[in-house]
Amino acid sequence: MADPVAITAPTTVLIKVIHCIVGIMTAPLPHPTGLAYHRMGHCTGRHRWWRPLLGTLLFLGAYLVLSLVLFALSYGVGAAAGLRELPDGGHDFGPLANTALDLTSIAIALPLILLAVWWPGRRPPGTLSSVDGRLRWRWLARCLLAAVLPVAVLAVTAALLPDSGSDSGEFGAWVGWRSFLTSLAVLAVLVPVQAAAEEYVFRGWLTQAVGAFVRSPWFAVLPQAPLFAAAHGWGTTWGFLGLLVFGVVAGWLTIRTGGLEAAVALHVLNNLLGFGVAAAVVDGLSSDETAADSPWQLALADVATTLLYAALVLWLARRHQPRRLASPVASSPAPAPAPATTGRTVGHHGESGQDR
């Protein structure tokens, strides 16, 4: 008969590990004063100058490795299926599958950047979401509602603009409801994660990495904007400037509202619009154009709607007042040791009782 101790020991260890992880994820922010979003690297008191640098290097290395693994897997499947090879070295799985692979290759950055915050950042991953140490779902919902009008204005403006004469020309005819709804279902799952991954890397990690060394929010916000624009490739000057403005405005809203919700909301709806329009026509998802390739008319419309969204979010922020600083944790002197005759111990939070 099996030894009960041998059976229950691994279970006990697993429970302790899960309890430790949950404790790390939900731990309060032990800092005596409030911190702005870009200074959240100091929220636990464990900040060292090398942590943001090491975290950035480890993130880039891990992202490169996972990207290569994803490419190798897709290449192997494509080669085994005898699919046509594309100029970039991959295989043609079809417009929707190719788009899904591209979105996934960006989305994998999200868990990696959260791991960089946890280690070597040595702080709760939720501190990358907001100064509350978590994603504020109610505030995110309000920002999503605020983004509907600007995104709708952008869609109408883009439809009314004359043909830009891009290389892609006309995409083609309507794909049909079945293909369109299938594409929308896939995009609805992947686009939010892809857009959030970009926000957590640029407006999140990079802003806080720079903010760990500087107090000015502008010095923390500005470096990530050109990097964000450059990550989309160089298309047109106007397209680059449009992305640059988006990065600056999204970064400022992040500081002003104390979290990434406002930036994520606009990014998600904006990308859903772009991919949704492309999915509606034949070969629309086959285009490799991005916002970096925008003509000047569309870039200016994008800038105008971004500023409109910022005005709406600031109006909402005045009404609902999302927290802009990390909650101060009251600092109190350490309690005196309890007399040995009481037979009681002082718990972790200063409460009497046995500390388990």
Rank of each mutant, 00 (worst) to 15 (best):
I7S: 05
T11H: 11
G23K: 07
T26M: 09
L29E: 03
G34K: 05
L35G: 09
T44R: 07
R46Y: 08
L53E: 10
F59R: 10
V69F: 01
V69Y: 10
L70E: 14
L70W: 11
Y75A: 14
F93I: 09
A97G: 08
A97L: 14
I108S: 14
L114G: 01
L114V: 10
A116M: 15
A116T: 11
W119F: 02
S130M: 04
W137R: 15
L140Q: 06
A141L: 09
A152M: 06
A158M: 14
E170V: 15
L181R: 05
L187N: 04
A188K: 08
A195H: 04
G204Y: 00
T207S: 10
A209Y: 12
A220K: 01
Q224K: 08
P226W: 02
P226E: 03
G233C: 02
G235E: 07
G239Q: 03
F240A: 13
L241V: 11
V249T: 09
A250P: 10
T257W: 04
L260H: 09
W296T: 14
D302C: 08
A310V: 00
V313I: 10
L314K: 11
L314E: 07
R318S: 08
R319K: 15
L325Y: 03
A330N: 04
P337W: 04
P337F: 04
A338G: 00
A340Q: 09
A340S: 10
G343V: 00
H349M: 14
S352H: 13
G353E: 04
